[in-house]
C-alpha cells in the first residue's frame, strides 16, 4: 500500500533478463555435446560416442545430486542406489518383455520415489555426519539387495539382449540415436531443475540450506521440503541409470557400489555445487580424467585419489571454499 511505485520498480529489477550466466554456460556445454558425435566419426573413432553417452548419463546424475547437495546442503552418499534402481528397472522389465524407454523411466522413477521417500524420511531426521553415514548405509542396503537377487545374476549381473525402444521405434539401436536421446534428456532435465531452483519451492530449499532455524522461525518446517527434493533427486538419478543400462547393455550391482556414490559427489564438487551447469561440467571433467589416467596407468585410481586429496588439502578453505571464492556455490537466486 505504501510505496507501491517502489515495489513495482523492485519487481521489475527482480525479473532479470532471461539468460543468466549459468544458463549460458549450460547452453555452451550442450552445443559442444551436440557437436561431439559428428566430430568423433570424422576422426573415425565412433567409440567416443559410447563413452560420450556414459558421460551424459553421469551428467544427469550429477545434476540430480546437485539439486539436493548444492541447493539443499544434503550430502547424500547413497545416490548410486538410484543409478542402480534405474538399471535394474530396465533388466526387470525386459524379463517381462517390456523394452520401451518411457515405461522403463516410469518404473525406475516409481521405484526410486518409494525408496527415496522411505530412506529419506529416516535419514532426514538427522543431520551432518549422521546423514552422510545413514545415506551411505541405505545405499549399501540396496546394493546387497540386488546382489542377493539370483534371478538377475546376483553379484555378476545380467546382460541385456537389446537396447530399449522409444514408443516402439528403434531410435536407440544406433550409438548416435542413444547419444542424442540422452542429450535431449539431459537438456530437458537441466531446464526442469533450473526452473525448480528458481521457483517458490527452490527458494525454500535454498533458504533451508542457508539457515534452517530462520526458516522455521518464519513458518517453514524444513523436513517436508527436504524430503520432496530428496525424492525428486532420486527419481532423476534413476533416469540416468536407465540410460546407463542401455549404454552398457549390462546390469549389475556394481552401478550401486558406494564408490559410485563417492564419484557422483566428486563430480558435483568439481563442477561447483549449487550451480547445475557446474556439475554437468564436473561429470565431464571427472570421467575424462578417469579415462585419461586409465590410459596412462592401470593404477589410475592411485592418481585419482591423490588428486582428490591434494585438491582438498591445497585449496586454502577446501574445495568448497575455493569454489566460493571463484563465485560459485553460495550464490543463489
Amino acid at each position: 500500500m505504501t510505496d507501491m511505485t517502489d515495489a513495482t520498480r523492485v519487481t521489475a529489477a527482480a525479473t532479470r533478463p532471461a539468460l543468466s550466466g549459468r544458463v549460458k554456460a549450460a547452453l555452451t556445454l550442450f552445443v559442444l555435446f551436440a557437436l561431439m558425435p559428428p566430430l568423433a566419426s570424422a576422426l573415425n573413432d565412433p567409440f567416443y560416442v559410447l563413452i560420450g553417452t556414459r558421460i551424459l548419463a553421469y551428467a544427469i546424475a550429477a545434476l540430480a545430486l546437485d539439486l539436493i547437495l548444492g541447493f539443499g546442503a544434503m550430502v547424500s552418499f547413497g545416490h548410486a542406489a538410484y543409478l542402480g534402481l534405474g538399471t535394474y528397472a530396465v533388466a526387470i522389465l525386459s524379463g517381462f518383455g517390456i523394452n520401451d524407454l518411457l515405461v522403463q523411466i516410469l518404473a525406475a522413477t516409481a521405484m526410486s520415489a518409494v525408496f527415496a521417500a522411505v530412506t529419506g524420511a529416516i535419514s532426514l531426521r538427522t543431520r551432518g555426519v549422521y546423514f552422510i553415514m545413514i545415506t551411505l548405509a541405505f545405499g549399501q542396503m540396496a546394493f546387497f539387495f540386488f546382489i542377493s537377487l539370483s534371478a538377475y545374476g546376483g553379484d555378476d549381473g545380467v546382460a541385456l539382449a537389446s537396447r530399449s525402444t522409444l514408443l516402439g521405434m528403434e531410435v536407440l539401436k544406433t550409438d548416435f540415436g542413444l547419444y542424442y536421446t540422452t542429450l535431449v534428456m539431459l537438456i530437458g532435465l537441466f531446464f526442469l531443475c533450473h526452473r525448480i531452483t528458481k521457483s517458490r519451492f527452490g527458494r525454500v530449499l535454498t533458504g533451508i540450506r542457508e539457515n534452517p532455524t530462520r526458516m522455521e522461525a518464519i513458518g517453514f518446517a524444513p523436513f517436508r521440503y527436504q524430503l520432496t527434493a530428496f525424492v525428486i533427486s532420486g527419481c532423476i538419478t534413476a533416469m540416468a541409470g536407465v540410460v546407463l543400462a542401455n549404454q552398457a547393455q549390462f546390469v549389475s550391482p556394481a552401478f550401486m557400489s558406494w564408490h559410485k556414490s563417492g564419484e557422483l559427489i566428486v563430480m558435483v564438487v568439481l563442477g561447483g555445487p549449487g550451480t547445475l551447469a557446474g556439475p554437468i561440467a564436473g561429470a565431464v571433467a571427472a570421467l575424462l580424467l578417469e579415462e585419461w589416467l586409465g590410459a596412462l596407468s592401470e593404477h589410475w585410481k592411485l592418481f585419482f585419489g591423490l588428486f582428490l586429496v591434494l585438491m582438498v588439502l591445497f585449496s586454502p578453505n577446501g574445495i568448497t571454499g575455493l569454489l566460493k571464492k571463484l563465485g560459485f556455490g553460495e550464490k543463489q537466486k
Binding site: 566428486v266 555445487p273 592411485l302 582428490l308
Partner: peptide, 15 residues
C-alpha cells in the same frame, strides 16, 4: 566442511 572431509578421505580410500 564435511564435504571436504568426505572427498579427501574418499581419495585416501582409492589411493
Amino acid at each position: 566442511s564435511h564435504l571436504d572431509q568426505v572427498l579427501a578421505t574418499f581419495g585416501l580410500v582409492m589411493m
